[in-house]
């Protein structure tokens, strides 16, 4: 499988990364280079093989339902490029 420039533009859009028109060709080439190379996995017979879900086989640990009441409003907003009155502020979103 390989990508064309339209696909590169589409995945860049999905990934929310602006790509200039003059970058498309190089990106197309790079991605196709990698895709061609990973194509060799097609040789491997994975019939009946379960996909790996975790590198280490342990049961998932769980937390008790205890709320830690701690107001971190300042801590979670202090790094924000746009914050006002304890809110994060972003360009208007139209629903």
């Amino acid at each position: 499988m390989s990508v064309d420039q339209k696909t590169v533009r589409h995945i860049a859009r999905l990934a929310r990364i602006a790509v200039r028109d003059d970058e498309l060709e190089a990106l197309e080439k790079e991605l196709n280079g990698i895709l061609d190379w990973v194509e060799q996995l097609g040789e491997v017979d994975v019939e009946g093989v379960e996909p790996m879900t975790s590198a280490v086989e342990v049961a998932m640990k769980m937390r008790d339902d205890v709320a830690v009441v701690q107001d971190l409003q300042k801590e979670v907003t202090r790094n924000a490029p746009g914050a006002e009155d304890g809110f994060y502020v972003v360009p208007k979103v139209v629903e």
């Binding site: 809110f87 502020v89 972003v90 208007k92």
Partner: peptide, 11 residues
């Protein structure tokens, strides 16, 4: 919140 500011949304 979309109604707090004409150009911005508050999260």
């Amino acid at each position: 919140l979309h109604d707090q500011h004409p150009a911005m949304s508050f999260v």
